[in-house]
Write a protein that binds this DNA or RNA. Structure first.
Lengths: 114, 114
DNA sequence: GGCTTATATCCGCTTATCCGAATATTCAAA
DNA sequence: TTTGAATATTCGGATAAGCGGATATAAGCC
């Protein structure tokens, strides 16, 4: 009878939320992941790119690192962050695609073709 | 010089966050989307499935509807919700895949093969 | 109209999340 | 070992988000 389960097991759901979903729920973290998809970057570089206070950027990077989505490498006093899970960027791109599609449909509904 | 932009335009980022990312940031909404991926369901059915208070389920469904991810159809006194953007479930599945991969790697790092 | 079922909304409350200035830490060069 | 640059962390406060009992609304039935 039961084929595809209708619910995600609670513990998996919990991990999914804590490690991925919640992480993607902040615009700055999205930008950080997106930026890192083009290659490793120092905190400084990311701070300038995002035009945000250094403490804010560092805090978000720490979140990403704690969740294992990003890793660091020291080079003297600078710390270089790089993406561990590139699939995340694919997901971000998918979401952008969905957004575009939704906006297109909204537009369509305003100016019907037929 | 500049090929792929390193940042997502702020207004797009805003919409992305408000309409999709933030939405996926709540476990109950994930479950609702997941459940709806198997077909339209009444609020009642979803309430029983999630084992959550009816007001909670209804509130989350309202959020999903306001964001255009889900739509409703009345049938007498019952309201049936259905998924408008099935791509969302693909994304959820991708995230589950990432999670599995991450856990596998964690495992691996504990018991090295070589 | 009165009653029942189904859904939506309200409201006070609690918790989660983010912010950014200030401060601490780390490292290397002088 | 003092200084400076880069990064991390602390901390108080603001805002957002979620909760669920209670209540309102809507539709159908008798």
């Amino acid at each position: 009878m039961s084929d595809t389960p209708t619910l995600i097991p609670v513990h998996e759901l919990q991990m999914l939320h804590d490690n991925i979903c919640q992480t993607l729920g902040d615009p700055k973290r999205i930008q950080l992941l997106y930026a890192l998809s083009q290659g490793p970057r120092s905190v400084n570089a990311l701070t300038e790119l995002l035009e945000a206070p250094q403490s804010t950027v560092s805090r978000h990077l720490a979140v990403l690192r704690q969740r294992g989505l990003v890793e660091t490498q020291r080079d003297g006093t600078t710390v270089v962050y790089s993406l561990v899970v590139p699939e995340l960027v694919v997901i971000i791109e998918s979401m952008r695609g969905i957004l575009r599609k939704m906006l297109a449909q909204q537009l369509e509904s305003l100016s019907p073709t037929s």
